[in-house]
């Protein structure tokens, strides 16, 4: 990671993504951005603000609502020397165009024996908690991470968002860049304030495949991604008041997973809780736990725990949705139960 020492400003994730895109478009003429409402509107979630004015409609393309076509086109652009960044507003919408992603983008390099790579970025919003119903609230991290050939990243804060975006565009592989609506910094969605961070103006990258220990602790490891990093940090702060020292790991990249950092933290604390707002079964939380447990890995003092969204569609009504979403209180309760059972 190159660390910039120049000016920093506090930015939202949306602004940080927009800045990264603008800087890379200025640096690399092969980068172009396309998607629905990404031009004039600057992206429904603000990830492409100012790009149309600065780079014009040749490189900043509002597409028809034709995901099958423009995701396929992105694969073709990537195979032809360009570096397309395609936004699909909500991760829930990917059913429309999944073939181009999991059968073309993800496999192009392999099928061609490394001769035709697929350097493209797919940006999409994830997450619920604001009553938008079950076709606008999913996360689906594991759905994408399950597919070989795709890289999947999700920032928890603006500094990482910019660095991960620059890494994603420069990566020679398809990278799914997920951003959580609760962290995006769009006023109309509310925003976890901790996601708004100092961001260097200069060019820097946050490496793909490297997790971060964002709070050090000794009693339990809390692993999160995107929004759930903040739930873990809130829980860690609450636990500290009761004398429990929690370490928090921000995955930052779901695939490839930074297994070494997870294992090292679990080995250090001996306890593991994974917090994931995606569907629980067959998900990121299971993969993290398997990472620690398999191959005679770290000996945990307690069985590991998952706090994840249960295996049900996301309901509209807030009384149901908030009942099942992960939150800091659930994390605290899980840790306390773990410590009581095996001090």
């Amino acid at each position: 990671m190159t660390t910039a020492t120049t000016t920093t400003r506090r930015l939202t994730i949306a602004k940080a993504m927009s800045e990264a895109l603008a800087q890379e478009m200025a640096r690399d003429p092969s980068v172009l951005v396309m998607g629905e409402d990404i031009g004039k509107l600057g992206g429904v979630f603000g990830a492409t603000q100012g790009l149309l004015d600065r780079f014009g409609p040749e490189r900043v393309r509002d597409t028809p609502i034709s995901e099958t076509a423009f995701m396929g086109a992105a694969v073709g652009l990537a195979a032809s020397g360009m570096r397309p960044v395609a936004e699909l507003m909500f991760v829930d919408f990917f059913g429309v165009c999944m073939d181009a992603i999991y059968n073309l983008a993800a496999k192009q390099n392999y099928f061609s024996g490394g001769k035709v790579s697929c350097p493209m970025v797919i940006m999409t919003s994830v997450g619920g908690g604001y009553g938008d119903g079950g076709q606008h609230s999913q996360c689906l991290y594991a759905t994408f991470a399950h597919l070989p050939g795709l890289k999947v990243v999700i920032p928890s804060n603006a500094r990482d968002a910019k660095g991960l975006m620059l890494s994603a565009i420069r990566d020679d592989n398809p990278v799914v860049f997920m951003f959580h609506k609760a962290l995006q910094g769009m006023g109309w969605l509310g925003t976890v304030q901790r996601s708004i961070t100092d961001v260097p103006e200069a060019d820097y990258t946050t490496p793909i495949g490297v997790a971060a220990v964002v709070r050090e602790g000794t009693d339990v490891t809390l692993v999160g991604l995107g929004l759930t990093v903040h739930l873990a940090l809130d829980a860690a702060a609450a636990l500290a008041k009761t004398g429990v020292s929690a370490e928090v790991v921000d995955l930052r990249t779901v695939s490839p997973l930074d297994r070494a950092t997870i294992r090292a933290s679990a080995a250090k604390t001996g306890r593991l809780v994974v917090i994931d707002d995606d569907y629980m079964s067959f998900g990121v939380s299971a993969e993290v736990i398997a990472t620690v447990c398999e191959h005679g890995g770290a000996r945990l003092r307690s069985p590991p725990m998952r706090i994840a969204y249960p295996d049900i569609p996301v309901p509209f009504t807030p009384v149901m949705e908030h009942f099942v979403l992960p939150n800091a209180e659930k994390v605290v309760a899980a840790v306390q139960a773990m410590l009581e059972a095996a001090p």
Partner: peptide, 12 residues
Amino acid sequence: LFNMAKGPIPGE
């Protein structure tokens, strides 16, 4: 302050 998550009818 307009916040989509608030009020008796949240969401879009």
